[in-house]
């Protein structure tokens, strides 16, 4: 019997898909191991009321560390409570989400526990006591199957790849207050800017509309903005490096080798040629659509569906058709 721990990430006091996916994976592995899934949440006062919701994703116990200093992420104060929980729990595996936060936190926890970490995995299994994972390497040009020969096995899962599965279950919440000496923190967040209210980050969106140099001018992004809106609240804008380097779009939107890796349900590449470094960031999307006037553009080599044509004709029509479809739902 082996238990599995999920680190459930909160952001601005809310638990999002990153938390639900991590807990769901932990629950699946726990079932395979004949053990239980536990979750740990760190946050500001009041976070425990939100944390209880994780029971429905299969966490039988949910440990909640509440402290003013935990309201926002700070690696200096977040590592110790997680390390303590792992040490006290005899876990076979610990699951993190490979978000910005998870990718900052998990390696530190791994170093403190002296166990390896498999980052950004797209598959994870537990059998015969061994955790094995599949993870993209060489920017998605190959996949490595790895066996982690240490316990607990630390794993971070690529966002959007694993299904969050709701069950008919409730978890028991226990709250603790970690000891944090705020004056001793060597890292201090002095300013935080959130993007527009309600907008999702390109790395977590389930639909991404990306624009490239074919858009011609930053003024034309209104076209993509309208398409994004038609696709719903879970859609985000992305960009190729060419347009980020030109200063047309912020780097936070860049998809690819030196930008973000995304795995949405739907990726729409508009006026993007599909350079290998761009593909590095989006080739694990479930469905890829390309709109490009050049039949030979490499993006058509990875696209499930392509339209050859002038994006300035195609995109407005696509926005209108999708808008009409959604209105009829």
């Amino acid at each position: 019997m082996a238990n599995i721990l999920a680190f459930a990430e909160q952001r601005e006091g809310q638990l999002g898909s990153a938390a639900r996916e991590a807990v769901s994976v932990a629950a699946r592995l726990a079932e395979a191991a004949g053990g239980a899934a536990h979750a740990i949440v760190l946050g500001g006062p009041g976070i425990s009321s939100v944390a209880a919701g994780l029971g429905a994703y299969g966490a039988t116990t949910i440990s909640v560390g509440e402290h003013d200093a935990l309201a926002d992420y700070n690696p200096e104060s977040w590592v110790a409570p997680i390390v303590d929980q792992i040490r006290s729990g005899d876990y076979a595996a610990v699951i993190f989400a490979a978000t910005t936060l998870g990718k900052d936190l998990a390696p530190r926890v791994a170093a403190h526990l002296d166990v390896p970490l498999a980052s950004d995995v797209t598959e994870v299994e537990l059998s015969g006591g061994t955790v094995s994972v599949t993870r993209p390497v060489f920017s998605g040009k190959a996949f490595a199957n790895l066996e982690i020969e240490a316990s607990p096995a630390l794993v971070s899962i690529r966002p959007n790849v694993f299904q969050a599965t709701e069950q008919d279950a409730v978890g028991e919440v226990s709250t603790f207050t970690p000891d944090i000496d705020v004056s001793a923190l060597r890292v201090r967040v002095i300013d935080r800017k959130s993007a527009a209210e309600g907008s999702v980050d390109v790395s977590e969106a389930s639909v991404v509309v990306s624009g490239g140099r074919g858009m011609k001018d930053p003024e034309n992004w209104g076209l993509l903005e309208e398409l994004r809106e038609a696709l719903g609240s879970d859609a985000a804008l992305g960009a190729s490096r060419a347009v980020v380097d030109a200063g047309w779009r912020p780097h936070g939107e860049q998809v690819g080798q030196t930008g973000k890796t995304v795995a949405p349900k739907l990726y729409i590449a508009v006026g993007i040629s599909g350079a290998v470094q761009h593909l590095a960031g989006m080739r694990t999307a479930q469905t890829i659509v390309a709109i490009n006037r050049d039949t030979d553009a490499p993006i058509f080599g990875v696209a499930d569906y392509g339209i050859v044509g002038d994006l300035f004709d195609v995109v407005p029509r696509l926005t209108a058709e999708i808008g009409a479809l959604k209105a009829g739902d």
Binding site: V115, P116, A118, S132, P136, V137, G140, K141, A142, F143, A144, N145, L146, E147, I148, E149, A150, R283
Partner: peptide
């Protein structure tokens, strides 16, 4: 302590 069982092309 990470054993590469297999490398494959996507």
């Amino acid at each position: 302590r990470v054993r590469l069982a297999r490398l494959s092309e996507p």
